[in-house]
Amino acid sequence: MTHPILAIQNLSAGVEGRQILKGINLVIRPGEVHAVMGPNGSGKSTLASILAGRDGYNITGGEVIYCGKDLLELASEDRAREGVFLAFQYPVEIPGVNSTYFLKAAYNEIRKHHGQPELDAMEFLTFVKEKMKILNVPEDFLKRPVNHGFSGGEKKRNEIFQMAVLEPKLAILDETDSGLDIDALKIVATGVNRLKRPDNAQLVITHYQRLLNFIVPDYVHVLMDGRIVRTGGKELALELEENGYESILHGAAVPA
């Protein structure tokens, strides 16, 4: 059996004294796509934020092992360098920072971390243009400041484009589908599917089943009130769509 990319054991965490995650258990192995679904306030985004290393959360119990390392001990930049990627629910606009410059800096940080030589501007441009072709990203994405003036759909697409460039081992997509029209959703999902490899994994956090028509998960986890209350295959998402989260609470037993 392969070693897991991510093993979350009994993770509890909160913010300002309020408990949000109440004992999460989740194991993700190479090649797998996991979906975490749940209603508002269930802790989905908190989970994503904690995995990426956002400040402001208190870890009150449990651990997160990423590729054999204690993930929670690492600074957020080191997590990224080790291959953790968070596609933001609300990508940040950074006027004044050129996208190419930003991506090259990020990419080279990761290379340096792995003892590889940095790419110069020309080499990087060749590399990145190849990625743009794969994902059908318009060229002006590179010329504009990071996310600045981008529409909601463009921002999400830019997240997936960054994911393609940085080639993470574990991609966490935090509600990448929210607010997208069906065309934008297809573009984003197609991008994600193309980046799937046997040696990486994806954790797709979503509120709506719709995304899972395009990104087919191996496992679906239902998160409610800080706990994973049910785990199943892709058919679980359909069940949720049909019957709502309430039915899960009343109808199914909490897995051990």
């Binding site: 990426a52 290393g53 956002r54 400040d55 600074a75 957020s76 930049e77 997590r79 990224a80 360098r81 990627f85 968070l86 933001f88 990508p91 940040v92 950074i94 930003f102 800096a105 990020a106 990419y107 940080e109 990761i110 971390h113 960054q162 940085l166």
Partner: peptide, 13 residues
Amino acid sequence: ESIFYLRARGIGL
């Protein structure tokens, strides 16, 4: 939030 965004891409503080 901007600082976190950059750090989450591997760029140091």
